[in-house]
């Protein structure tokens, strides 16, 4: 700080402007992406696109109804498998694990699992479900997505359960209520909003995952007839259309991207609105 006062003020202003520019670029990228997708996707969006099956290769038209339903199926099943596992393990960590050795290793495992690339999770689901059953299936895709969802739900559940004041547990226990009932009827309901929102955000992320579905759910030009059949999903169809040589499929890829993006945005916005009163009330 030996320089003149004016020089120091100039440096300060310059760095302020530079870092502001960084932030503007970072946030601007999001709006550029959203705007571009809306512009390219909206023109191809139609009722037929949402309700019809894909047209045969080479023909124009057709829709992605099977992909939308397939995504709902696979993500829904992943939620049914992954959310309860994550929540219950989170209950263990918060209510029983404390600083114990098992809790330490479970947290470590969850953090590791959370960092595993989704394509490697796909490999795991492939070995776990596809190889023994000798077929690609909606089930194997759901297992892959569930494995992605579990560690996110787990750490989120633990965090929100820790926010529940210990005095609430004490009050219920003092009335002679058994501990399991206190956990299920008092502690979990108190943290319900945070836990559900976290689960929803995790599922929104799973809905956009493509890599683990390539060799599990695989894709299908028709309706998937059962959970043990290959099934089309929105992100994978988007991918296949995007890398295809057909202009009409490129057009449909943008429309599919718009649908996927709207879903992800809606969940994120809802989560933000939904969570606000809780964080405000807690502080």
């Amino acid at each position: 700080m030996t320089g003149g006062h004016a020089r120091r003020r100039r440096v300060n202003a310059l760095m302020f402007a530079l870092t502001a520019l960084c932030a503007a670029v970072s946030a601007g990228v999001l709006f550029a992406i959203l705007g571009y997708i809306a512009w390219k996707g909206a023109s191809s969006l139609s009722w037929a696109f949402l309700t019809r099956l894909p047209a045969p290769v080479g023909e124009t038209g057709g829709g992605i109804a099977n992909s939308i339903v397939g995504s709902a199926e696979v993500v829904g099943l992943a939620g049914l498998i992954g959310v309860p596992v994550g929540v219950l393990a989170g209950v263990y960590l918060s209510e029983f694990g404390g600083r114990g050795r098992l809790a330490f290793w479970v947290r470590y495992a969850a953090d590791t699992l959370n960092g595993v690339p989704s394509i490697v999770v796909g490999l795991f689901a492939y070995a776990l479900v596809v190889l023994p059953m000798r077929r690609f299936s909606a089930l194997s895709g759901a297992v892959a997505l569930a494995i992605i969802v579990v560690p996110i739900v787990l750490r989120n559940t633990e965090e929100f359960l820790r926010l529940v004041p210990g005095t609430i547990r004490e009050a219920a226990l003092a009335l002679g209520v058994p501990r399991w009932k206190v956990t299920l009827r008092v502690v979990l309901p108190t943290a319900r909003r945070g836990i559900l929102t976290g689960a929803l955000l995790a599922l929104a992320r799973a809905a956009g995952e493509t890599a683990p579905l390539i060799f599990t759910a695989f894709g299908n030009s028709f309706w998937g007839r059962s959970l043990l059949q290959p099934v089309a999903t929105l992100p994978l169809t988007l991918y296949n259309y995007a890398i295809s040589p057909y202009d009409d499929w490129h057009r449909q890829a943008w429309a599919a991207a718009l649908i996927l993006m709207l879903f992800v945005l809606a969940v994120n916005a809802a989560a933000r609105v939904w969570l606000k009163p809780v964080s405000g009330g807690a502080s």
């Binding site: 932030a23 970072s26 946030a27 999001l30 992406i33 929104a204 996927l260 992800v264 945005l265």
Partner: peptide, 12 residues
């Protein structure tokens, strides 16, 4: 806005 950028699916 920056957090939302993280939510954009990579295929998009």
């Amino acid at each position: 806005a920056i957090e939302l950028l993280a939510a954009v699916p990579s295929v998009i």
